[in-house]
Nucleic acid binder design. Structure first.
Lengths: 113, 113
DNA sequence: TAGCTAATTAGCTAAATGGTAAAGTATGCA
DNA sequence: TGCATACTTTACCATTTAGCTAATTAGCTA
């Protein structure tokens, strides 16, 4: 989409579309961590880690501080709340075999019972 | 991430990271639709619409049929259920001012009360 | 058969993404 | 002051993505 691909939900979903970044969030759910701590599980270079963190920050999923030479990151879950709210409209579609129910309703509406 | 960026959750999040595709899903939540019907609200060319549908299909978010020259698409919500499940681990982080609570707990643990 | 409609495929461009190495910034400490 | 540590910035590369036009496939209908 050309017009405004930077809406908040799009930014959040794009940030979550990478397993490295999701792993980082999982780590941050345990509490704040420095960049080095966040990098430790991966074989990626530091600049790459920095980039991932910037993506998470731009999506509002983390907030960053300064303590001496460290830049601790902290989880910010508000965008996840928004994702959850977006999902709610679809909940009925995956609960209670909704798809099969829909098929049935369409059938009988056509008089195809 | 070089190794295996095609895990299911990543595919789903990537598919959802586009407002056009989310609008298509919203339309499909009302019931199946043809490609042309799905294209109608947008100023995009048909090939572009086709591509978006392919992304949604690859993520398992829609299923496609054949009826004469039409290719009706139907919402498949299972991947959204997976997203919802993934989100659950973070729910506590956005509910009940969890962040401020966390700050407080960290403070008193440091004896900084 | 010809022609219309629906949709996809092919081939292109521009921009974004994820990775790298090398250089630069900022802080603490000997 | 000088060095080590923790990160970021810069510059580059390859791949993917989102868009386009033009051409092609598929099916209905006259």
């Amino acid at each position: 989409m050309l017009p405004n691909d930077t809406d908040s939900l799009s930014l959040t979903f794009a940030a979550l579309a990478d397993p490295t970044r999701r792993a980082m969030l999982a780590r941050l759910a345990q509490g704040p961590a420095t960049v080095k701590e966040l990098a430790q599980p991966f074989t990626l270079s530091m600049p790459t880690i920095s980039k991932h963190l910037k993506v998470l920050e731009r999506a509002g999923l983390i907030q960053r501080g300064r303590e001496a030479q460290w830049r601790p990151a902290q989880l910010q879950a508000a965008p996840l709340r928004d994702v959850s709210a977006w999902l709610e409209d679809y909940r009925q579609h995956w609960e209670a075999n909704f798809d099969r129910l829909q098929d049935y309703l369409r059938k009988i509406q056509k008089g195809d019972s």
